[in-house]
Design a protein around this nucleic acid. Structure first.
Lengths: 197, 197, 197, 197
DNA sequence: ACAACCGGGACAACCCGTTGCT
DNA sequence: AGCAACGGGTTGTCCCGGTTGT
């Protein structure tokens, strides 16, 4: 019981990293076997199929990311600072070995856009959660007078997300430039000059 | 034009659309056969392998995108207007059936980040070309006095690219919001308030 | 020990029904687990292998059938009546839930003809027992004057068995006709007109 | 085209023999590969799945059997002689290498009673054809005055079929006795004494 | 000469019966 | 006695080359 839970978590952690770097179709069971040190039977004892494993692995990684971002938000007191903390945390995510492949939301969105409806659904839901969080923070900031009341919270939230995601997606393939650093700087300035009053 | 050239182009067009929506590993030769209406022999007569086909299809789609963007740039007279034209053109790309899957650069970057070195190389090169183009335009704008001379052309170019790519990548999975419209508006404002003088 | 014996019998009963309807290869351990409500460990605690379980399950079902037929024989006084009772009992077997799959002898014979030597041996032995029983009854009938002395007991026994088995085997797949009823009627008439004197 | 048809037929012939002796579940693709000398790709080029192969193989063997029986019927002039010819032909089938495993109808009926609906359907249909053929012959015999008009054609047809099938099924597992010979003799006598007038 | 066909072999995911360890 | 791991075996798909008929 205890041992099983531990290995289950281990499988999820390792396979999540694989899926996030090589993609769902690019990660074979042989890869997962090699990454976990288990044989096929050992894996199929915990997950009925590769699909179920992938879904759980995605959830695992998404929850991990969410908790980091929520922690960052919780550690800040005012809405503007909450946004800045969230941005900084996201931009720092890539140095974490768990997120070496980038943002699981975007990666899954790009790969499983057409192929995997179940994953697509989770991605959709994930972005909705994220967008909702930002919208809530910005709305509160408007209410408290931190942000201008002419601001469209939804638009601002979308702006932040696409900038962060675009930077994260390109951080691996851009040569000289540092997309995440640029995004961080750009969004800080955006918040200061366009949102704050 | 020869008949052979025509079918070769047709294979490229059809398979490029497949690769761009379903990914490289997600598109089997059976899919390509179905999409082109040709048998395996007919395809292998023009391309030595699936890899070669994929590489050529990527080039085909990338060149198509490049020419659209370059046309937009050529149609504008001043650097700021050139940027705006490029942005608008990119944001309008998704409605083109050839680019239904999104930006081939980003799609390929995300899927073949670790798996396919040859494709990765082309993606890297593609982004470099794009970044260089923007940098050149912005540099010219600074020289001509359209843009502030305190502006870092590379940073600004990166900012524009990541915003556009992030928006394009999320335009398929975002529910209510319209990422490409938000990106367009955001970049227009960014150019007006942060770059222009 | 007592409890163990009970569960062992339960496993045998349930798995025998499975093997008799779905066959040896068609019944997986997962099926047996579902049918018995036990886990794999609980089954392997009583039987060393699926093979051993199958052998015992066959024996169990065969003995059950044998005892029904022997009871029928014992309840009749004269050889002709013994034959008729045996025939009627066999034809009524299919309505018994334990024999829903038909005659275990024939089922096993057909499926494991070439695959499973150990089972084949038991089937061979089972038919020999059955044939011997009929031959003995018929021989006794000849001796007592119930049957003609020109009768070949072995031939008559074989005739009865193949008719019964053929009817049982086809009783599941024949549409309108009722093979077991026809067999019963045919054999009654056969005994009356060809065997009796 | 011609070559392909030839190998397709060869696959059907060989696999039909396999299925008829070892059963559907007992015959793996590895067995079929060994029997045909082809690799998996070569087989799956002609059949989409093992199921489709099994269905076609069954049809192939069933048609072969049907044509033998129909030929025998066609070679006889009167209904009684047609029945006798059919019986003799069926009893001689086992010596044919194609039918070493016995009657495909009964084998499939016993094994795939519960497991394979598509096969079960074909078996059902096959028995219906056979039963109809016998019924028609007997009916004609009654009309022509060869058989008694008190005879129930359906019952008589069923009697003949179950006797033949039972004998065929047991011909492999019976030790000393010769079920097919006994069946042949029994049915000849049955026709002479019970059907003819 | 050339395109369609046929066959090859590696590999995919998944399930199986089985055995230790706890 | 039960959970966890095993590893070989299952069907099926993949991309690709050699052969063959036209």
């Amino acid at each position: 019981m205890r041992k099983g839970e531990a290995t289950r978590s281990e499988i999820l952690r390792r396979s999540a990293a694989l899926f996030n770097t090589q993609g769902y179709f690019g990660s074979s069971l042989a890869d997962i076997m090699a990454a976990t040190g288990l044989k096929k039977g050992g894996i199929y004892n915990h997950f009925a199929s590769k699909d179920e494993l992938a879904l759980n692995a995605f959830d695992c990684l998404f929850e991990a990311m969410k908790s980091r971002l929520l922690d960052a938000v919780a550690s800040a007191s005012s809405p503007p600072e909450q946004l800045l903390a969230l941005i900084d945390t996201f931009c720092g995510l890539r140095s974490d070995p768990d997120f070496q492949g980038g943002c699981p939301l975007l990666n899954t969105a790009v790969e499983s856009d057409d192929a995997h409806p179940a994953l697509r659904e989770r991605v959709h839901n994930g972005f909705a959660q994220w967008h909702g969080l930002l919208k809530r923070i910005i709305g509160q900031g408007i209410q408290q007078g931190d942000f201008r009341d002419t601001l469209d919270a939804g638009h601002a939230a979308t702006t932040i997300i696409i900038t962060l995601e675009g930077a994260m997606a390109l951080s691996g393939v851009f040569g000289e430039a540092d997309p995440l650093g640029v995004a961080r700087e750009h969004l800080h300035r955006y918040i200061d000059t366009e949102m704050r009053q």
